[in-house]
Amino acid sequence: MGFKLLSKLLVYLTASIMAIASPLAFSVDSSGEYPTVSEIPVGEVRLYQIADGVWSHIATQSFDGAVYPSNGLIVRDGDELLLIDTAWGAKNTAALLAEIEKQIGLPVTRAVSTHFHDDRVGGVDVLRAAGVATYASPSTRRLAEVEGNEIPTHSLEGLSSSGDAVRFGPVELFYPGAAHSTDNLIVYVPSASVLYGGCAIYELSRTSAGNVADADLAEWPTSIERIQQHYPEAQFVIPGHGLPGGLDLLKHTTNVVKAHTNRSVVE
C-alpha cells in the first residue's frame, strides 16, 4: 500500500471513529477524501466538511520552486461564519470567499490569524475590503508590521502568557507558548472536538522541520505538551499544512522538532 493511500485511509478511519463516538456532533463529509496538494491548482481553494458547521479550507501556493498546501478553518456561528487564517495570499483568499459563498452561503463576518507569517495573514486586506472584521493577538499584529505583512485590524486580548485561553464565538483560542513562531495560536472547536494546530503542528508525513527561522526550538516541545494537557479530548487535529489526523500529530511534531534540534547540535 502506497504512503499517500495509507495517509488518506488514516484520515478516513479517524473521521469514521469520530462519527461513531459522537453521532450528534459529527456529520463528516462523505463526498470524498481530504484534498491534497496535487489536486488543488494554485489560485483555487477546496472546502472539506469535518463536522456539522465545521470545515477546513485548503489552498496551495508556490514557494521556492515548489507547491505547498495550506489549511485553515471555518466555523459556523449562528447565521454567520468565523474564518481562521487566510488562504495564503490575496488571490487565494478572494477564491476562498467565493467558494464559501458557493458552498455554504453564509457571510464571513470575523477572521482570526493564528500567527504573523504570510500563509496566515496574506489576504487580510481582501477580507477587510469584503467587510470582514480581522483579528490577531497584539504580538501577531506587531510582528506582521515588522515583517511588512498585512496586519489584522483588531487585537485579541488575554493571550499574552503561555497557557492563556479565551473564548471567541464558537471557538476557544489558546496560546501554548512559542513553537513554530513566538505568537502562534491554537484554535479548538469544543462542539466538535476539532483542534486546529496551525503551523505549530505537523502532518504525519512530514519528517523535516522546514521553516524554523522564527521558531523557538527549545520551547516548542513544552508548548505541545500544554496543548495535549489542555485538549486531551480532541479527536480531529488539523495541521497548518497537509493531512489531518488525531492527537498523534502532536507527538510526531515533537519528535521531528527534537530530531532537528539534535542534528543542529551535532553539526
Results as ranks from 00 to 15, higher is better:
Ile227Gly: 02
Glu44Val: 11
Glu233Trp: 12
Pro23His: 12
Val237Ile: 05
Gly198Val: 03
Leu10Arg: 09
Glu147Val: 12
Ala218Ser: 09
Ala21Lys: 13
Leu185Asn: 03
Asn262Leu: 07
Val37Leu: 09
Arg167Val: 05
Met18Tyr: 09
Leu195Asn: 00
Val194Thr: 06
Val146Arg: 10
Ser162Thr: 09
Leu247Gly: 07
Tyr48Phe: 12
Glu80Lys: 15
Pro152Leu: 04
Arg128Val: 07
Ser70Lys: 02
Ala179Leu: 02
Gly65Arg: 09
Ala111Trp: 04
Leu156His: 03
Leu47Glu: 01
Pro41Thr: 07
His154Leu: 06
Tyr34Val: 12
Tyr34Arg: 12
Ser7Ile: 11
Ile58Asn: 07
Val67Arg: 11
Val256Cys: 04
Trp55Glu: 01
Ser7Ala: 08
Gly148Val: 09
Ser16Leu: 07
Val54Tyr: 00
Val194Tyr: 01
Gly177Ser: 03
Phe174Cys: 01
Val171Ile: 13
Gly240Gln: 01
Gly123Cys: 03
Ala111Cys: 12
Ile227Leu: 07
Ile20Gly: 08
Leu217Lys: 07
Glu157Gly: 15
Tyr202Lys: 13
Arg167Tyr: 07
Tyr175Phe: 10
Leu250Met: 05
Leu47Ala: 05
Leu217Val: 12
Pro190Gln: 06
Leu250Val: 10
Gly105Lys: 15
Glu99Asn: 05
Asp85Pro: 00
Val266Gln: 12
Glu44Asn: 15
Ala136Cys: 14
Ala179Phe: 02
Lys4Asp: 11
Gly122Tyr: 06
Ala192Ile: 08
Ser70Glu: 03
Val132Gly: 01
Thr140Pro: 02
Ala66His: 07
Asn211Lys: 07
Val212His: 06
Ser56Glu: 10
Ile238Asn: 02
Lys91Ile: 09
Ala129Asp: 07
Arg142Ala: 14
His241Ser: 01
Pro239Gln: 01
Val237Thr: 06
Leu83Asn: 00
Val256Ser: 05
Pro176Ala: 06
Val146Tyr: 14
Glu145Tyr: 15
Leu83Ala: 13
Gln235Leu: 05
Leu82Cys: 14
Thr60His: 14
Ser160Leu: 11
Ala130Gly: 11
Gln49Leu: 12
Val124Cys: 08
Leu159Arg: 01
Arg142Tyr: 15
Ile20Asn: 09
Tyr34Ile: 14
Ala21Leu: 10
Gln235Ile: 07
Phe174Lys: 00
Gly148Ser: 13
Ser16His: 05
Ile17Met: 06
Val11Gly: 06
Ser181Pro: 02
Leu243Met: 05
Ile40Ser: 13
Ala15Asp: 09
Asp52Val: 11
Ile151Met: 09
Gln103Met: 07
Glu145Thr: 13
Val121Arg: 03
Ala15Phe: 13
Pro221Ile: 15
Ala111Glu: 14
Lys8Met: 07
Leu97Cys: 03
Leu250Gln: 00
Ser208Met: 12
Val126His: 07
Gly177Asn: 00
Ala25Ile: 10
Gly131Leu: 11
Thr261Arg: 09
Asn262Ala: 09
Val108Cys: 03
Arg76Val: 08
Leu127Asp: 02
Asp85His: 02
His154Cys: 05
Gly169Gln: 03
Phe26Trp: 07
Thr14Ile: 12
Ala66Ser: 08
Leu247Lys: 05
Gly198Arg: 02
Tyr231Gly: 01
Thr134Asp: 05
Val256Ile: 10
Gly72Cys: 02
Leu159Tyr: 04
Thr36Val: 12
Asp125Asn: 11
Ala200Asn: 00
Gly72Gln: 01
Lys258Pro: 04
Thr36Leu: 10
Asp214Lys: 07
Gly240Met: 03
Ala15Arg: 06
Val42Asp: 15
Ile238Gly: 01
Ala21Gln: 14
Ala111Gln: 12
Gly122Asn: 15
Thr114Pro: 01
Lys258Asn: 06
Lys102Glu: 09
Tyr135Thr: 01
Phe174Gly: 01
Gln235Phe: 04
Leu73Lys: 02
Ser16Thr: 10
Phe174Met: 13
His57Phe: 06
Val124Phe: 04
Phe168Asp: 01
Val121Lys: 01
Phe168Met: 15
Phe3Lys: 10
Phe63Pro: 08
Asn255Val: 14
Thr60Cys: 12
Met1Cys: 03
Leu73Ala: 11
Pro23Val: 13
Ile84Thr: 04
Glu145Gln: 09
Leu6Asp: 13
